[in-house]
């Protein structure tokens, strides 16, 4: 077990859920809340990150506890300076466990047609949806590389790589960037048992998509919007043991919208 080609792997027998916890950014609502609940149901201690929805985050945590899982709310704006280190430190303090599952879900929109899109609206969306995901990924790789196990799942979108949505140049750029980030980091760390994947939701019923889906619905072969739980199912799969050989890919969850 000590040949030069076999890297250290002395903790593989213990379930990952005993060795680490999960962090879901933007976990208080919508898709993030469903992912948090799903990962908790799979046995992960979950940090439910939120920026301003303290009450909603508390409800997610309470629902997880009622279902027999463990979770804590972790407040923090992922786009703030030093946010990654701070979130990880607080979650380590609360759970006693390093982050071995990171779900970069926090996302915002600030729509406007390109001729009128301000630098501020461009920057805010790139900061939260892309740069924060990179910084959290960088911080998460430290415990993951050490543990020889890790799961990073980036919540991208069909907007960007697969579809154009007029008024969302910033969002599309961030989400397409997230797919590039996913593939690159996946290639860098694959040999350490750390996988990095993305899910690309289509039209999903959440506050964020409230009121914008009617026109799009006609283009969805499934003839309905997706539910947050249906996106969470893909994330749970990618975070699970069965997905150990899947890395650098994007799993589209869109009812056939981009088929």
């Amino acid at each position: 077990m000590s040949s030069a080609s076999s890297k250290r792997d002395d903790t593989a027998e213990v379930r990952p859920q005993e060795r680490g916890c999960a962090l879901v950014t933007g976990g208080s609502r919508g898709i993030g809340a469903a992912i948090a609940g799903g990962l908790a149901a799979d046995g992960w201690f979950v940090g439910v990150n939120y920026r301003s929805g303290a009450e909603a985050a508390q409800e997610v945590v309470a629902a997880i506890a009622t279902a027999g899982g463990s979770a804590v709310p972790v407040q923090g704006d992922v786009s703030a300076d030093g946010a990654a280190d701070e979130l990880f430190a607080r979650l380590l303090e609360e759970s006693g466990l390093p982050v071995l599952v990171l779900v970069n879900n926090a996302g915002i929109t600030a729509d406007g047609l390109s001729p009128q899109l301000s630098d501020d609206d461009w920057g805010r969306v790139i900061d939260t949806n892309l740069s924060a995901a990179f910084r959290l990924t960088r911080a998460a790789l430290r415990p993951m590389l050490k543990a020889r196990f890790g799961r990073i799942v980036n919540v991208a979108s069909v907007v960007g790589v697969n579809r154009a949505n007029a008024g969302q140049a910033n969002y599309a750029a961030a989400k397409a960037g997230l797919v590039g980030l996913t593939k690159t980091v996946a290639a860098e760390v694959a040999r350490r048992g750390v996988t990095v994947n993305a899910v690309a939701p289509g039209l999903i019923e959440t506050d964020m998509t409230d009121g914008i889906g009617e026109g799009l619905l006609a283009a969805v072969p499934a003839r309905r919007a997706g539910r947050p739980e249906e996106v969470a199912a893909a994330v749970r799969f990618l975070a699970g043991a069965d997905a150990s050989y899947i890395t650098g890919t994007t799993l589209t969850v869109d009812g056939g919208l981009t088929a």
Binding site: A4, S5, R142, L145, K146, E188, V189, R191, R192
Partner: peptide
Amino acid sequence: SLDVDSLDLVELGQ
């Protein structure tokens, strides 16, 4: 020669 790769050196750095 030791089959220590760039990612190992990153870990050494940590």
